[in-house]
Design a protein around this nucleic acid. Structure first.
Length: 600
RNA sequence: GCCCGAGUGGCGCAACGGUAGCGCAGCCGACUUGUAAUCGGCAGGGUAGCGGUUCGAAUCCGCUCUCGGGCUCCA
């Protein structure tokens, strides 16, 4: 279940006035920005045309915060080209050239773009006979518009990066060179956006993972395989303990399943056929082919089928922190958010059709509870409906989709329909989070499955004594431990709330003669379950504070002569706030309260 | 997988055809300090790997691996 930040340029840092704007004002503002961005893209294309008269043009649309344009060029661009292109764009903007719109027939368009194969392809796909073109300066482009009235209205822009991109996103077609840029109404907004990028870079979980000693990857072990260091593992264990406890509260049972299974099982499930590109090659075990598991569901189904199941025992909710391995193409791996081995916080619910709605409601409530607990307070909900390729009948799809909608309505959850975005085996509800920087991540998902129950003949005996197909729901409330951890690191910028902090308190003795007392304090706190360490190095207090601060340890407990005398600690928070000396009991109370409340 | 860029001591960087340097961390020593870096010393790599060009290669070329930004895909 995806939990990936939107692409570059997709970072959507909230502008200060965003929440105060009315809907209409916001809409106008968005339209204006789109015009500016789209126009900037045309100006960039004009520069490219002047630099490379033989350039072939792809498309140059608006994206979140900016724009891009795809070009087929005689040579590859380098990052050094960007400032030059920017400078030329600035010249065109300074000339304040008007954008003019014309309507032309298909035939005229074909002759205007006679040497532009990509444009010709687009023209051929436009159903209408008339289409619009826009000109500015020496540049003309096939374009629906709208644009700003003249180039001078493009006030603040910056080119960010160059990337390869297949024509129409199809890897069988030529790869074009794409330039990404951002544009805003004012320099201030552009500045704020760039600051946002810098802030995001500081919070990058890959960087923090190294600085905070949380996890690593190894060339020797292979890409996309996470090694959890003690501190990262501590956070993970705390999340998992909490996860298990909350599942038990909600009537789930915890199961475990093996990491490999015979190839035949994966043929039976359909994964071998439909999911092949993500599977690792079979391994030979005494002449039998085995596969390392990409999913947990078949195992849960086998366990379900060990005996007849009565309608009375449904719903059955089986949860597993199941580690799976999926082949991902080397180019798509990304830190913790896209890996080749990961642990899903998986669960499968087997229920009767009449129970589906309640189960979905339960899952959604659970998912939202988890998100809130981990500090994510904004989310959007998407209902993904039947795709082109699907299992089952249209009737079951409609019924299930309606059930999902009823569940959403019962919870009064605002949602959007995402047409055709369901999985082939059933409709689903995805929840997207917004993190501390306003970036959207894909979070929990709930999927109805018509395929597996049928393939494995998963049934229950109803009150009529007859076997009926069970309804199966796959769901996660976090996604995967790896991806969720990555998201969490970025959300908190590494400063985990106290209950999750790998080290909760660092005792800092001012001089060596305070060491004994420091150890006594630490022992007492450890006895209370607080993860406490003593910085015993013969270094200055200031250095120890600095390092504890950089490690984002919630509490720094400075102990010197005063504290020894008063049996207390001087508490400094990672915010920089100095709470001064207090008794150890007072501190313990404060810390246990923060842990219980799961606050920072 | 594809396009572009990059791999230099544990980490962050410099040297960019002419004996690989700096800071942090580490080790040793001195200092024993009141809320974000005490001082001094020592040690540590032959430049991701393999092959080539050259009198000479971190520097140029080729292949491989890994990482970054994208395309595509996804938990």
């Amino acid at each position: 279940m995806p939990l990936v930040p939107k692409r570059m340029g997709g970072y959507n840092f909230r502008s200060e006035n965003e929440s105060e704007m009315g809907d209409q004002a916001e809409k106008n503002e968005n339209e204006k920005m789109e015009r500016i961005r789209h126009s900037a893209s045309h100006v960039m294309a004009e520069v490219i045309q002047s630099l490379f008269p033989e350039a072939k043009f792809g498309i140059g649309p608006v994206i979140e915060s900016g724009f891009y344009y795809d070009f087929d060029l005689p040579r590859t661009l380098t990052p050094e080209d960007l400032p030059l292109i920017e400078a030329r764009m600035a010249e065109i903007i300074a000339q304040d050239l008007p954008f003019t719109r014309e309507e032309v027939s298909k035939e005229e368009a074909r002759s205007i773009f006679a040497h532009q194969p990509y444009k010709l392809e687009l023209i051929d796909e436009i159903p209408e006979e008339l289409m619009s073109i826009y000109r500015q300066g020496s540049f003309v482009d096939l374009c629906r518009g709208p644009h700003v009235s003249s180039t001078g209205e493009i006030t603040a822009f910056k080119l960010l990066s160059i990337a390869g991109a297949y024509w129409r996103g199809d890897e069988k077609r030529p790869m074009l060179q794409r330039i990404y840029g951002v544009a805003f109404d004012t320099q201030e907004e552009l500045g704020r956006y760039l600051e946002g990028l810098a802030e995001a870079a500081k919070r990058d979980h890959r960087k923090l993972g190294q600085e905070l000693d949380l996890f690593s990857f190894h060339e020797e072990a292979g890409p996309g395989l996470v090694h959890w260091h003690p501190k990262g593992a501590t956070v993970r264990r705390l999340i998992e303990d909490f996860w298990i406890a909350e599942h038990l509260k909600r009537g789930y049972e915890i199961v475990y399943s093996p990491h490999i299974a015979k190839l035949d099982l994966w043929k039976m499930s359909g994964h071998w056929e439909l999911y092949r590109e993500h599977l690792y090659s079979p391994m030979d075990v005494e002449g039998q082919e085995y596969l390392i598991k990409p999913m947990n569901c078949p195992a849960h189904i086998l366990m379900y089928k060990t005996r007849l199941r009565s309608y009375r025992e449904l719903p059955i909710r089986w949860a597993e922190l199941g580690t799976v391995y999926r082949y991902e193409r080397s180019g798509v791996l990304h830190g913790l958010t896209r890996v080749r081995g990961f642990t899903q916080d998986d669960a499968h619910i087997f229920c009767r059709p009449d129970q589906l709605e309640d189960e979905v409601v339960g899952v959604l409530e659970f998912a939202i509870f988890m998100m809130h607990t981990f500090g994510f307070h904004e989310h959007e909900v998407l209902l993904a409906t039947r795709p082109e390729r699907y299992a089952g009948t249209i009737d079951i799809w409609e019924e299930a989709t309606e059930t999902l909608e009823r569940a959403l309505k019962r919870l009064a959850l605002p949602y959007r329909v995402d047409p055709g975005e369901g999985v082939f085996y059933g409709p689903k509800i995805d929840i997207r989070l917004r993190d501390a920087l306003g970036r959207r991540w894909q979070g929990p998902t709930t999927q109805v499955d018509f395929n597996l129950p049928q393939r494995f003949d998963v049934t229950y005996v109803d009150s009529d004594g007859v076997a009926h197909p069970v309804v199966m729901v796959h769901r996660t409330v976090l996604g995967s431990m790896e991806r969720f951890f990555g998201c969490l690191i970025e959300h908190f910028g590494g400063a985990f709330p106290v209950w999750l902090a790998p080290v909760q308190a660092m005792v800092i003795p001012i001089s060596d003669r305070h060491l004994d007392y420091a150890h006594k304090v630490a022992a007492e706190l450890q006895a209370e379950g607080l993860r406490t360490q003593v910085d015993v190095r013969p270094d200055r207090m200031n250095l120890k504070i600095r390092q504890a601060q950089l490690q984002k340890i919630p509490y720094m407990l400075i102990v010197g002569d005063k504290e020894v005398a008063s049996a207390g600690v001087s508490v400094r928070l990672r915010s920089g706030e100095d709470l001064g000396s207090q008794t150890l009991d007072t501190f313990k109370e404060m810390a246990t309260e923060a842990i219980a409340q799961k606050t920072s």
